[in-house]
Amino acid sequence: MPLDTSAYSLALLRVDGRRWNELRRIHAQIRTQAAADGSSYLEMGHTKVMCVVTGPSEPGPRRGTTGGAAAGASKAAAEVAVSVVVAGFSSVDRKKRGRGDKRNLELQSTISNALAASLHTHLFPHSVIQVSLHVLSQDGSLLAALINAATLACVDAGIPMTDYVVACTAGSTSTYAAGDESADPLLDLNHQEEQELPGLTVATLGETDRVAVLVCESRVQVGRLEGMLAVGVDGCKQVREILDRVVREKGKRMVLEGTVVKGEGLEDMDLD
């Protein structure tokens, strides 16, 4: 069994060989399901998620899932309905999570709120945007991966939005109880780090420092929080770069293949 997170101070290396400010390898694809309105596939290390967006469309008579944003209350804007399905094989111990699982519900409403704030839902009254997320493999930073995948799929679905909603996690190298004020902040926690160390998930609106989601479920000294948040926001910008590149590359290929016509005002778009 490998060393635990307390070995960080020996050589400033984390359990998987990263430095404190390094993201894991992010691999993303969009338009993976041709039949869907929008779709994406995203890997952050060994965390692998898939997203399919349907809509905006007229709400059907029966709705399987509920989104937190505008559930029935207002017809003036589209409702973002998020469903998260965690595959039984996604984690080591094959635990089955039911539909009513509280953690799942919280994930769903967090993502729904975050997307609703960035998507221009007021353009689609009386409609629903269905976001279906599937977790194929879990290795920490699950919420961040889900948000990023949902953003990509929404881009693919062509829903107007202010900017990318990008997320990543941040942590700290020593536990709360160790009370070590000089602990280094960490970027992008994996499962083991998430278990052993304090951490938070932060999502920002694109390149701005505007925080869209901030979730911290572990105990950590206030003094360390600022550093963690700064590293997290910085990580979000890196994630945005990566996602943006994925979107542009896909767009470029589609124009070259003739799947889509190059839009107007995009003459300067570099197709080489």
Binding site: P2, V15, D16, G17, R18, E22, R24, R25, G45, H46, V92, D93, D139, N190, Q192
Partner: peptide, 12 residues
């Protein structure tokens, strides 16, 4: 129970 654990390793 026997569990199989897979961890990433970043070589540098």
């Amino acid at each position: 129970k026997v569990q199989k654990i897979v961890r990433e390793v970043y070589l540098r």
